[in-house]
Amino acid sequence: MAFLEIRNLRKSYGRAQILKEINLSVEKGEILGLIGPTGSGKSTLLRLIDLLEEPSRGAIILEGRAVSGRPEKERIAARRRMAMVFQKPVMFKSNVLDNVTFGLMVRGEGQAEEREEKARAALQAVGLSGYESRDANTLSGGEMQRIALARAIVLEPELLLLDEPTANLDPRSASAIDSLLQGLAGGRTAVILATHNMMQCRRLADRVAVLVEGKITALGESEAVLGQEERNGTSGWKVPGSDLPW
């Protein structure tokens, strides 16, 4: 039984079908790369897995139990086993420490001191030690992205959903984040990494799913899916099963 299973998932907005019959599974300790062009439905799929939206059809199954379409109380319980980093993270109007401890606080985990200690460790992991008292909304896009990642990893989630987590980062910061994610491999966390960056996907992901126009067109070991197709980074690369280059 897979830790996360996505079965026959469909999502439509009006007549527009964004996701079509998605079937995926992820194990704990595994990093699944989700790669595809802009508008292919990667972010929507992550939002559905995070239970921020309901699928039009199909199911999200966590350790054998359907969590989509369930009452809000059960959805909250399931969501508290996950954490998501959005493509364009937003910060609460407060300092960095409050932002990083937010998830721990709403989940009722530990005392204030314990939460702060965990938050400091998470900030250190993303290279932002000493930022605790800074106003989170005055930081650069890249710094906010790292705060968002710290806000997620501090929760020690069983499932980590990452939507382009290094898109706004300079190469050095991106590399630090990659190392952090590599550290999660083989542990108790399952990671789904949505990205445009094939190099990153190849470097981090155990398996890759290619999403084109809402459909999974290829799924398998990273090397098998990406290895033969990759040429000079993302430029000119063609998705298996699609004519779309990106």
């Binding site: 921020l52 969501r79 508290r80 998501m84 959005f86 709403v106 929760l155």
Partner: peptide, 20 residues
Amino acid sequence: PHIRDTAISLGANESQVIRT
């Protein structure tokens, strides 16, 4: 609306989302 999504995603329940 991203603030709401972020709070929900981090595990906030309805009253915590409203407070946030």
